[in-house]
């Protein structure tokens, strides 16, 4: 397997008004073509920053990122990102359908664009919501729109920043399987950032475990679970459980008191996110009722 993406001695320090903050200390890894790599690490350790440097949105202060052997300067072709802040990444003045079509304007004609958007919206289960505006959807649905938009773009490299964080458990399973399927079909290379250990094991061909802030690679694990993966059987398998335990231990290894605190905060945050997602589902149901009656 040839290295599609290579990150070498990467470091990034933000310059803020109140001093400098090092988000990434020293990262080196490679991702082969067609691989799905999960990056796990505690909140605030620099995962989003890593994705920004890979996508060429910011220039790292140290080291280098290269794609297909070429150093990344500016945003490369054939790359899509699902941003963590999905609600802001959608355009409120465009319908769901138009949001998905938005990046296709450059490359596809009108009819093709429309067909492609309809197809992926169907894939993520939002066929019925195509003509709605993003604010009419729940958080989880908005996140699916953002995912649909990235998939419709058919990138060679897909970067996803905690893409399933605010969808309900069942949809999450469906979306995970969808991602695996799309990756197989289009031979897409995928880098998924997550702080969910189970998810990283279920999805990944490899798992990169990052230390707390500033980020560095603690371990690079190969996931030897048989394909195709299956939500219940795979998660019950011995290999899965063992790997999950290993990642969990790695994330706790060498943690000082400070990092423990950071983790607890992160857990609280994700608990809150789940609660929010639940509430969002309720309000989604309400919104749909309203839309149906109006």
């Amino acid at each position: 397997m040839t290295a599609m993406l290579s990150v070498a001695e990467l470091g990034h320090t933000y310059q803020a008004k109140d001093g400098a903050h090092t988000a990434i200390a020293d990262l080196s890894f490679e991702v082969g073509a067609g691989e799905l790599v999960c990056v796990v690490g505690p909140s605030g350790c620099g995962k989003s920053t890593l994705l920004r440097t890979i996508s060429g949105l910011i220039r790292p202060t140290r080291g280098e990122v290269s794609l297909h052997g070429d150093a990344v300067r500016g945003v490369p072709e054939d790359l899509a990102v699902v941003f963590q802040d999905y609600s802001r990444s959608l355009f409120p003045w465009l319908t769901v359908q138009k949001n998905v079509e938005f990046p296709l304007k450059r490359t596809l004609g009108r009819a093709q664009r429309r067909a492609r958007a309809a197809e992926v919206l169907e894939l993520v289960g939002l066929g019925k919501a195509a003509r709605k505006y993003p604010w009419q959807l729940s958080g989880g649905m908005q996140q699916r729109v953002a995912i649909a938009r990235a998939l419709a773009y058919r990138p060679a490299l897909l970067l996803m920043d905690e893409p399933f964080a605010s969808v309900d458990a069942q949809t999450r399973f469906e979306l995970e399987d969808l991602l695996l399927k799309v990756k197989e079909e289009h031979d897409t290379t995928v880098l998924v950032v997550t702080h969910d250990i189970d998810e990283s094991v279920y999805l990944g061909d490899r798992i990169l475990v990052l230390s707390g802030s500033p980020a560095s690679v603690v371990a690079d694990l190969r996931v030897d679970l048989p394909a195709p993966r299956e939500q219940i059987a795979t998660r019950e398998s011995e290999a899965f459980v063992a790997l999950r335990g290993e990642v969990a231990r790695l994330l706790n290894v060498g943690k000082g008191a400070e990092e423990l605190r950071a983790r607890r905060k992160a857990d609280e945050r994700s608990a809150r996110k789940w609660a929010e997602a639940e509430r969002a589902e309720v309000s989604r149901a309400e919104a749909e009722d309203r839309a149906a009656t109006s």
């Binding site: 790359l79 990102v81 941003f83 990046p103 450059r106 773009y153």
Partner: peptide, 16 residues
């Protein structure tokens, strides 16, 4: 910023 970054990532043309 997120909208700017989204547009940059999809390399949308200046006019768009």
């Amino acid at each position: 910023t997120t909208k700017y970054e989204t547009s940059a990532v999809f390399r949308i043309p200046k006019a768009q």
